[in-house]
């Protein structure tokens, strides 16, 4: 049985149909890439799964229970964690405290003692490679480290499903490489399922087991990275009409 099932979800903002009858599943220990052009509803989908928005229609089922109407903090306690597109660390708290708050809440809420939580925090901080800055306020870090703090904090809640909203955006190629290896390590060592929203195509193709493509709120394709890269519809969404593109290329060549 799949870990997460999003069933026929529809969400509108006024006249805008942000999500149109989207269905997708995430299996246990799977990395699902979620791609699509700007404004295609990727972040909205993440917000629906994490409980920021309630969809007008459809259901979200996590580990067999319907959580469509569950509050955001309760979903975290069930084992859903996320990061934000624009990093939202606790700026005035240290890296250690940031992650500690994650360790004290989430799925461990009320079940973990302070010492255990601190140990857990240390572990996770060293996993993402932030040990050298752990006593610095988070606002003093650079973008990559802040993204790592957010990742560590989400990880500390002990989730079964981790949603990363553009956690590679704005990083340099070497930083992307490092982040990807961390993400892979999270899945391999802890068996956490991951949904990755991403624009950097080679990264998603590289790390995902399966990819879902959204366009204008609709799911237009789904499959392994290989299938997606050969998909006619996806190419159209990203590059426009294939024929038109080819014609255009030809014309520029002629002119030159």
């Amino acid at each position: 049985m799949s870990l997460l099932l999003v069933e026929n979800v529809t969400k509108r903002f006024g006249g805008l149909l942000a999500l149109n009858n989207v269905t997708l599943t995430v299996g246990e220990g799977e990395i699902l890439g979620l791609i699509g052009p700007n404004g295609s509803g990727k972040t909205t989908l993440i917000n629906v799964i994490s409980g920021v928005y309630t969809p007008e229609y459809g259901r979200v089922i996590f580990k067999g229970t319907d959580i469509t109407k569950t509050k955001s903090y309760q979903r975290s306690r069930l084992g859903i964690a996320r990061t934000y597109q624009i990093v939202r660390v606790f700026p005035n708290l240290t890296v250690f405290e940031n992650v500690l708050i994650g360790a004290l809440n989430g799925r461990n809420y009320g079940k973990i003692v302070m010492n255990k939580a601190e140990e857990r925090t240390e572990d996770i901080i060293s996993l993402v490679g932030l040990s050298h800055v752990k006593d610095f306020p988070a606002k003093m870090l650079n973008v990559q480290d802040r993204k790592k703090v957010e990742l560590a904090r989400a990880l500390a809640t002990d989730p079964d499903l981790l949603m990363l909203d553009e956690c590679l955006a704005g990083l340099t190629p070497s930083e992307i490489f490092e982040m990807l290896s961390i993400i892979r390590k999270i899945r391999d060592e802890r068996g956490i399922s991951i949904i990755m929203v991403e624009h950097i195509m080679h990264a998603v193709m590289n790390v995902s087991d399966r990819i879902v493509v959204l366009n204008e709120g609709k799911k237009i394709a789904e499959g392994t990275p290989k299938e997606i890269s050969n998909d006619q519809k996806v190419a159209e969404v990203y590059f426009g009409d294939r024929e038109l593109a080819l014609k255009f290329v030809r014309r520029t060549q002629e002119n030159a």
């Binding site: 934000y84 708290l93 994650g102 004290l104």
Partner: peptide, 19 residues
């Protein structure tokens, strides 16, 4: 700690499982 988290970022605190 949960209060400090709320002070710094209300929404992020909520998604971490803080009521």
């Amino acid at each position: 700690y949960s209060l400090k988290a709320i002070k710094d970022d209300h929404d992020a605190a909520e998604t971490l499982g803080i009521n």
